[in-house]
Design a protein around this nucleic acid. Structure first.
Lengths: 153, 153
DNA sequence: TTGATATCATTTGCATACGAATGAATTTGA
DNA sequence: TCAAATTCATTCGTATGCAAATGATATCAA
């Protein structure tokens, strides 16, 4: 093999052909699919709430009363998105809103009794959802995966 | 320590307290955040296309003419979603549609010359997006992560 | 052959998700 | 103190994403 051939081979190995882009192997694409699969598993276990709605309820259960924006930042939703989620939870009587006495800009969000009951009933199911989502991995693999995923997010 | 205490301790270790559900540690939640981060990186590099739109173009570039539904299954989009994506690409002149001669139900999708130019120009950038998305991981970690992520998706 | 099924595409309705613009209230800093 | 900057929330527009219903066409099976 000539020096030229070797160089060619190295270049091939390092720089993939531009015409050969494998969508199915790109992180973004697989991340999107993994997320889709999770949402589907979630829906199969909890039909009447979406993952974002449950996230809002679970976080409220965890931290108690918060402003709408603050809640949004805790569950990674921008202001516009969290508003829609909270509006729908409010319409269903799972959360209630009130005005902050001191800072009149803030809208405080709280679980209602019904909302609290719902979260507490659903948390065990949410654990099953996590388990089923990770089911394709062994316990060791799952631990490694979660560590690396957290670094990416 | 009494037998009762030991049993209590074991139960605590195996069955997490129902009141202590850590949203931030659930796969679904982190998956959603990782996906959000990727979309944000994508948008910073490619402002005029979304990841699904690019996926459609890249896949068309890869496989050539396909029916709309077939394309959808190749890029993990249901019929309703892929229709919207293709409609918008068509409106921008990046793909063109035609009817299948034999099977009159099918709508064939093709890249236009402009669409082909766009994909070929963007593929190197898409590689950078993948790289930046995986940047928090070492090369070894990234390889492991991709293997495990693929198992989940 | 034809009736039951299945497939392809479309439409509607609902729920994220986010950028950008707006308005109200608060905080900062010169 | 008071004008500028920031924060909180809302609204609008656009783009996925999916369930369910519908219509057209194609395939299968009795």
């Amino acid at each position: 093999m000539s020096a030229e051939d070797i160089k060619l081979k190295l270049v091939e190995a390092e720089e993939p052909d531009e015409n050969d882009y494998r969508l199915q192997e790109q992180v973004g694409f697989i991340l999107r699919k993994a997320h889709q699969r999770h949402v589907s598993i979630f829906a199969a276990h909890i039909a009447d709430l979406t993952p974002p709605q449950f996230a809002a309820l679970a976080k409220l259960h965890d931290v108690g009363e918060t402003s709408q924006n603050q809640l949004g930042s805790l569950i990674a939703m921008d202001a516009a998105t969290v508003k829609g989620v909270i509006d729908r939870l409010k319409a269903r009587g799972l959360v209630e809103l009130s005005k902050h006495e001191v800072d009149k800009r803030r809208l405080l969000v709280n679980l209602t009794a019904e909302g609290r009951n719902a979260v507490e009933r659903l948390i065990p199911i949410a654990r099953e959802i996590t388990e089923e989502t990770l089911a394709p991995l062994s316990a060791k693999e799952a631990a490694i995966f979660m560590r690396l995923l957290a670094k990416l997010a």
